[in-house]
């Protein structure tokens, strides 16, 4: 059974049209359905404004979806009380994109990682301190640096702190929202390797939100491509990259710069007239769906 199921998820943001006129909503997420299996890395890709980050936040109820269903281990997350939701967040954690703004600059690194343990009343001070040291080592940081402030760490190290914080309560499911896009290429590779290694060691399930298609291809088992709030294509990574069925996916993949000067490039331009934006997903191949 799937660890996470998202069904017909909708998020509308109100848009004010003049002071007294009724608000007409913007559908940031429009009828999105997918499921994430235990132990897999499911990629959610799309360009800015496609709604991928909003989906991640709706799943954790950091923002409330307008309608739809989110099930985690078959339980209906959207019906949880505040207390039950807080409990559920032990299991479901998030790593944010920007390691510069997602860490409190006035807190020491050790305290940042310890905070979830305090909030969730996980043990006495001595136990927590030991756990923080363990988490530092787990993500490749020197526990001796726990008294430093975020600005004393490099971008890659800061993202490791964010990861240690997310892993503090032993979650089974981690939403990684563009976890390496603010990092340099060589550092990015280190953090990607760390994510893959932690997944194996801790049996984590990832929802990996990204705009970098090369990265998604590297680490995801399955991928959903978002376009204007909808999933236009969903399938196994290799199947989707080798034989993209939706015109948007085709355009997107053809736009990736290939690191080979001898490669022949054929740019496919997106023609929005060429497809029906409201089309339903249909199976084009076993486990590979496209809205065509």
């Amino acid at each position: 059974m799937a660890l996470l199921e998202v069904r017909h998820l909708v998020k509308e943001f109100p848009r004010r049209r003049g002071l007294f006129r009724a608000a007409a909503g913007i559908r940031a997420v429009d009828d999105v359905t997918f499921s994430v299996e235990e132990g897999e890395t499911f990629g959610l890709v799309g360009e800015s404004g496609s709604g991928k980050t909003t989906i991640g936040r709706c799943i954790l109820r950091l923002i409330e979806p307008t309608s739809g269903e989110v099930r985690f281990r078959a339980e209906d997350v959207l019906s949880f009380s505040r207390a039950r939701m807080r409990e559920a967040r032990r299991e479901m954690q998030i790593v944010f994109q920007d390691p510069y703004s997602s860490l409190n600059p006035r807190m020491r690194a050790g305290d940042i990682v310890e905070e979830p343990l305090i909030i969730h009343k996980a043990g006495r001070k001595a136990v927590r301190v030991e756990r923080v040291a363990e988490l530092f080592s787990l993500v490749g940081l020197d526990p001796a640096q726990r008294a430093r402030y975020p600005h004393q760490f490099s971008g890659g190290q800061r993202q490791r702190i964010g990861l240690a914080r997310a892993l503090a309560l032993n979650p089974s499911f981690v939403i990684a929202d563009e976890p390496v896009s603010a990092l340099d290429v060589s550092v990015q590779a280190q953090v990607v390797n760390l994510l893959m290694e932690l997944q194996e060691r801790l049996n984590l399930t990832y929802l990996f939100i990204a705009h970098d298609l090369r990265l998604v291809r590297q680490i995801c088992s399955r991928v959903a491509v978002m376009y204007r709030g909808r999933i236009v294509e969903l399938g196994g990574t290799e199947s989707l990259f080798e034989a993209p069925a939706h015109p948007y996916t085709q355009a997107l993949l053809s736009a990736i710069p290939v690191p080979d000067p001898a490669a022949t490039r054929q740019r496919i331009m997106l023609d929005e007239e060429a497809f029906d934006t409201g089309a339903a997903l249909r199976e084009v191949e076993a486990g590979h769906w496209a809205a065509i």
Binding site: S186, Q188, L213, R214, L215, R217, Q218, T237
Partner: peptide, 8 residues
Amino acid sequence: SIPGLVPG
């Protein structure tokens, strides 16, 4: 370090 060339 470029991702995506040898998936997985």
